[in-house]
């Protein structure tokens, strides 16, 4: 062990705080100058944490009997009652759906309908709820089958019922999904049967806001909200939620996805029809284009 004189050691201990402060301020500057630096660090940390969270996710799921969150254990009786009535209704709807499906198939056959190509998708467990004070995101563990992680950035995340968010960062083992309730989330949507365009913006609260709808056609209470292909970032027609008015002239979307109790997410990647606006790195193409322009 190195022996240092007492005054020197005191000076050193007094200096660590200012030095660390300067170091952190430097990090802020680096983070502001190079946005991808924080992304790389975050991806690395998520890759380390994801297996650890995966280990503890099992016991938590067992504790809640695979039905929801630990908090839900307190209102099991009322939930049971609600589920019974809902089940009765759903059985009726199932009959309707089967009839409609048969009719739809028959109509498609007569029209010689060409089905749209199925997107690639991965299913992953939600292992951690890593939001911040002003951010909403979850961590998803990816199955280890050698998929290209960069391929997944921009993928649409859906739970069993509707759109939950988009992948903003992906490492080799984990992907971080920015939820639709996040302050930075902006999703072009189509409202109701006629598909009136609007923008759904997250507010950090439980229900995202609707912005920029056509002035003559205000969103109707209870209208279905689907994703819109406008801007090209999302495939059209994915279910998002239902319009609801909290106050006059302030429509919000009640998300279909159970955003407080996400357990499994499917990540759909649509690699071929992505425009330049999406957060997928287009650097190789861009570099090649610039290079060819020189010649």
């Amino acid at each position: 062990m190195i022996r240092l004189s007492v005054p020197f050691r005191q000076a050193l201990s007094r200096l660590t705080l200012p030095v660390m402060l300067m170091f952190s301020l430097g990090l802020i500057l680096i983070g502001r100058a190079d946005q991808s630096f924080a992304g790389h660090l975050r991806g690395g940390l998520d890759d380390i944490l994801a297996p650890a969270y995966g280990l503890v996710a099992g016991p938590i799921a067992a504790a809640e009997h695979g039905t929801g969150m630990v908090g839900h254990l307190f209102d099991l009786a009322s939930e049971n009652q609600q589920l019974r009535t809902e089940n009765d209704e759903l059985l009726q709807w199932q009959a309707v759906a089967m009839a409609l499906e048969a009719q739809n198939d028959a109509l498609k056959q007569t029209l010689h309908y060409v089905p749209s190509p199925q997107p690639e998708f991965y299913t992953g467990d939600v292992v951690a709820d890593l939001g911040g004070v002003y951010a909403r995101s979850v961590l998803v563990v990816l199955p280890a089958n050698g998929t290209d992680p960069q391929h997944l950035v921009g993928a649409v995340a859906m739970d069993g019922r509707g759109v939950a968010g988009r992948v903003v960062e992906a490492g080799s083992r984990s992907a971080r999904v920015l939820l639709i309730t996040d302050l930075n989330s902006r999703i072009p949507v189509a409202l109701g049967p006629s598909g009136v365009p609007a923008l759904m913006a997250g507010t950090n609260g439980p229900d995202p806001q609707l912005l920029y709808w056509a002035p003559g056609q205000p969103p109707a209470e209870g209208a279905m909200v689907l994703t819109s292909a406008m801007g090209g970032a999302f495939p059209p027609g994915l279910p998002v939620g239902v319009v609801h008015y909290d106050a006059q002239n302030d429509p919000v979307v009640l998300p279909l996805a159970d955003l407080d109790a996400l357990r499994l997410l499917r990540l759909f990647s649509y690699p071929d029809n992505l425009p330049a606006l999406t957060p997928v790195p287009h650097a190789p193409d861009g570099a090649a284009a610039r290079h060819s322009r020189k010649h």
């Binding site: 952190s24 301020l25 990090l27 802020i28 983070g31 924080a38 890593l130 911040g132 995101s137």
Partner: peptide, 16 residues
């Protein structure tokens, strides 16, 4: 900062 999606280094400065 890395867990909570805040700007890198912000909480480091605040905690210090």
């Amino acid at each position: 900062d890395l867990l909570g999606l805040s700007p890198l280094g912000m909480w480091a400065v605040l905690l210090l």
